[in-house]
């Protein structure tokens, strides 16, 4: 009984509330964060957005820890990128939404495709004609990609590839260490390289 009554009450109030997202206030807080690194203003923004972000994230991630990570990442980005918010271009809610959407997109890709390529900022650019200043990124990406492909090789081939390329052992040294005939090492390496080629795109399918 009582719960029902409570529900009704919340209902009436919330309809009024939802018309009352105070857009100018949100803008002011974002401005204070960007111009003065104002922690009080950030706390207000946090209290407004974080509970909502958690609920949205829970609908996309089964795992509570992942939903919490979305909040952490999104709000960190709000703190670090507040100076990129341009109120002439749209509402604060729109901006925070895009930050959250991008974080979620990259995390879902990490969970589903096991890829940490953070493509969201290329698909939904944060600022026109500008990108994050992160020089090492590209090499890092290529290495990550190669590593992922190598990790998918059968164990017998993987150890040979890793020994030969990463630890720079000779084929003879590998044969000795793994206690295998040199011919076996050579054929495993050849098989592995053929697979890597296919995986890395030299296939003609």
């Amino acid at each position: 009984m009582q719960t029902n009554l409570l529900c009704k009450e919340t209902n009436a109030k919330s309809i009024k509330m939802s018309d009352e997202i105070d857009h100018p206030q949100l803008c002011l807080w974002l401005k204070a964060v960007s111009e003065n690194r104002n922690k009080q203003a950030f706390t207000h923004l946090f209290n407004f957005f974080a509970p909502k972000i958690i609920r949205i994230a829970r609908s996309k991630f089964p795992n509570e820890a992942q939903a919490n990570e979305v909040v952490q990442e999104t709000m960190s980005n709000v703190w670090r990128k507040a100076h990129l918010f341009n109120q002439d271009k749209g509402a604060a809610t729109t901006w925070v939404y895009t930050v959250m959407r991008n974080v979620t997109f990259d995390m879902l890709r990490k969970v589903k495709a096991n890829k940490e390529d953070n493509l969201s900022d290329d698909i939904w650019p944060i600022a026109e004609g500008l990108v994050s200043d992160d020089d090492a990124y590209e090499d890092h990406l290529e290495t990550e990609n190669l590593k992922a492909v190598i990790d998918n090789l059968p164990e017998s081939q993987r150890e040979v590839v890793k020994g030969f390329y990463f630890m720079e052992m000779t084929q003879e040294q590998l044969a000795e260490k793994l206690n295998l005939p040199l011919g076996t090492i050579k054929s495993r390496l050849r098989l592995a390289l053929a697979k890597l080629k296919v995986k890395l795109g030299e296939n003609h399918d």
């Binding site: 690194r37 922690k39 950030f42 706390t43 946090f46 209290n47 974080a50 958690i54 509570e64 919490n68 909040v71 952490q72 709000m75 960190s76 980005n77 703190w79 670090r80 990128k81 100076h83 990129l84 944060i126 600022a127 004609g129 500008l130 990108v131 994050s132 200043d133």
Partner: peptide, 23 residues
């Protein structure tokens, strides 16, 4: 289940801001 105050303190402890460059 998350401590909001902790999270806020953690985030605002850093002064780093996002730096952009020409694409």
């Amino acid at each position: 289940t998350i401590d909001f105050d902790d999270m806020i303190a953690g985030i605002t402890a850093s002064d780093e801001i996002e730096v952009l460059k020409e694409k």
